[in-house]
């Protein structure tokens, strides 16, 4: 099913990954690859295994079976809930993680991230007082501190309003444009249509589809103006 040229080198890959929690199987035999500069979306309903898959790729959890390959420390991780200290300012959060990443020049890394995220005038504000959108930007910025070759984001837009969402995707699209592999999860079908080069469909831990949004649209069939309804029908058809 993959449509990408086989000559390209995958930066992130999963081979027959299985994850069980007791007798619940969160992931079953999932395999895929993601390439440099690619925006790869993982879509699926709640409980599909998106977070589990991403955290295995990030090295937070170990798979029960199969294996993943990724560029190790060069993988940036952006968890669903902002993993930042609300009592610290934006700059203090960035500086702390820059130091923990053992970057050679933490201060310039902080400056660079403040530039990237356009948060210069908020630099000394406590993160807890920022809007959800700005908090998410700090969260993403911390994931980018190590200048990753691959960036993993778990439902990055879930807590954002449409304008904040727009700005976030503009920013992430820029990263992919500069060659970063971006793998993100979402349950927003519209987002996949607009901001993904390829899409994985995950339901109940099973990989149902890998392809471009256009190919998914054709596989789903129905009215192309109502992608969401078609997607739900597709899941029903697959028995989920």
């Amino acid at each position: 099913m993959p449509t990408t040229a086989p000559t390209r080198q995958a930066t992130v890959a999963a081979r027959a990954v299985t994850k069980r929690f007791g007798d619940r199987t969160a992931l079953r035999d999932v395999s895929f690859e993601a390439y440099s500069g690619e925006l790869l979306a993982i879509i699926g309903p709640n409980g599909a295994g998106k977070t589990t898959l991403l955290s295995i790729l990030a090295g937070i959890q170990a798979p029960t079976g199969g294996e993943v390959s990724s560029p190790g420390r060069k993988v940036g991780w952006v968890p669903q809930q902002p993993a930042i200290y609300s009592k610290l300012s934006v700059a203090e959060n960035l500086r702390l993680f820059a130091r923990l990443e053992k970057l050679s020049d933490p201060d310039s890394a902080v400056e660079r991230m403040l530039d990237h995220t356009d948060l210069h005038e908020r630099a000394n504000e406590e993160v807890g007082r920022l809007s959800a959108g700005n908090q998410q930007r700090v969260n993403v910025a911390i994931g980018l501190l190590c200048e990753p070759t691959a960036l993993l984001l778990d439902e990055p837009s879930a807590s954002l309003d449409p304008r904040q969402r727009e700005r976030l995707w503009g920013f992430i699209g820029g990263l992919a444009g500069r060659g970063t592999t971006v793998v993100y999860s979402t349950h927003n079908v519209v987002e996949v249509e607009r901001y993904a080069d390829r899409v994985l469909v995950l339901a109940d831990g099973e990989l149902l589809f890998v392809g471009t949004p256009g190919e998914l649209g054709r596989a789903v069939g129905g009215d192309p103006r109502d992608f969401e309804a078609a997607f739900v029908r597709f899941l029903d058809l697959c028995g989920h």
Binding site: S55, A58, G59, I60, R73, W77, P79, Q81, P82, A83, I84, Y85, S86, F97, L100, E101, I142
Partner: peptide, 13 residues
């Protein structure tokens, strides 16, 4: 509670 634990133990600490 700040969700920082997973980020920290991912190779930082």
């Amino acid at each position: 509670e700040e969700h920082a634990f997973a980020r920290l133990v991912r190779g930082l600490v």
